[in-house]
Amino acid sequence: MKPYLLSLGAGLLVGIIYGLINVRSPAPPVIALVGLLGILIGEQIPPWFKQVVSRQASTAAWVGHQVKPHVFGELPCGQVPKKSSDDSQQERDAS
């Protein structure tokens, strides 16, 4: 989630700078971005319809495993670092 917020913040900053120097943004118009969102959502309708007709898995599971990764991209997740044997030894020595 943090990269998305950073991206939004950077975009807002650039937009403010463009506004201050009266330059048009090279980004596509909002109507085109809404169309792209429609494409992403529309791509999910045929698999959803197939799932409803076959009544296999629950819709909530399908949304979580199929729709979210495709529409929103894979969100970054942290990994817990593994403790090495040196770390374990240092913890025992400190006790």
Rank of each mutant, 00 (worst) to 15 (best):
H65D: 15
H65T: 15
H65I: 14
H65L: 15
H65V: 14
H65K: 15
Q66F: 13
Q66H: 15
Q66R: 15
V67E: 05
V67N: 01
P69R: 01
P69D: 00
H70W: 10
H70A: 00
H70N: 11
H70S: 10
V71D: 08
V71F: 07
V71W: 10
V71K: 07
G73T: 03
G73H: 01
G73N: 01
G73P: 06
E74N: 14
E74W: 12
E74S: 12
L75W: 10
L75S: 08
C77N: 15
C77G: 14
C77Q: 15
Q79N: 13
Q79P: 07
Q79V: 04
V80F: 11
V80D: 12
P81Y: 07
P81C: 01
K82R: 13
K82S: 10
K82L: 12
K83A: 04
S84R: 09
S84H: 04
S84F: 07
S85C: 11
S85A: 12
S85P: 09
D86F: 10
D87K: 01
D87L: 08
S88D: 05
Q89K: 12
Q89W: 07
Q90W: 04
Q90A: 01
E91I: 04
E91N: 01
R92C: 00
R92K: 04
R92Y: 00
R92T: 05
D93A: 03
D93T: 02
A94I: 03
A94E: 08
